[in-house]
Amino acid sequence: MTGTKAAAPATEYSAGALAVRGVRKVYQGSGRTVEAVRDLTFTVGAGDLACIVGPSGAGKTTLLKCVAGLLAPTSGEVRLGDARVQGPPPGMAVVFQEYGRSLFPWMTVGANVELPLKQKKIGKAERAALVAQALDSVGLQDAPAAYPWQLSGGMQQRVAIARAIAYEPKVLLMDEPFAAVDAQTRAELEDLTRSLWRKLGMTVLFVTHDIDEAVYLGERVLVLSASPTVVMEDIDVDLPAEREQLTTRALPRFAELRAAVYGHVQRAKTFHSAAAAAGAGDRP
């Protein structure tokens, strides 16, 4: 795991590129250690949209927190551009699954979106423009004076997305952002995410447990194994860039990719025990 610091391709060093190298995370409990993530190595190129899927309990959230700099990996490193991530880096925004807990309930929608910009020391006029633009692009131009808890779940997640894009991040991390909204809203938010990505061109790392969502959204799908986690498969999604809920999902290629990812995820659940049975790994 120490050898991974050696020569990496120069293209990785462009600003929005994300490199995860040999990341391992072990939680030390009282008399019990849990290896949540064993050895994760992958890169996401600048401006790419990669989805991470894996069975539940695969350490997806642990991985995302390590990437976001919220959690220090036990070993290995995460690099954003040419800098090592040691705390939440500037230029990275996160959208959490729990929209109800990630918006400040004592601030209006507008103030929620504006707050990170104040921290970035952006001038007042420019802040106002960015907030208005971001709310407009998620379809909430009329909501800046409302409080988050006055909005529906889907709208609250839109506010969180608006806050993230107003921040003008190079990398946007999304941790199962649509797992807690209804199916209709979810489809809308998926399309919103893709259109924002295409418009703004930031790197997006999207964690989900939903295989359909991963294939529909991603340019790439990384399949994680069950915990202790490794990257099991890296699949290129060669669907047209212009995606649409009905027609894209009806494409034969979509079904093929979906089946392939599904197969990998099924295999991921028993990845370690199968390896152990083959005598190549250790028993969990």
């Binding site: 939440p88 990275m92 925004a93 959490f96 990630s102 400040f104 707050l115 990170p116 806050r163």
Partner: peptide
């Protein structure tokens, strides 16, 4: 104070007095 909210604040660079 909610952990998710606290993480959110950290991600957006809220430290110290802010």
């Amino acid at each position: 104070i909610d952990e998710v909210l606290s993480d959110t604040a950290r991600c957006y660079g809220l430290t110290g007095t802010a």
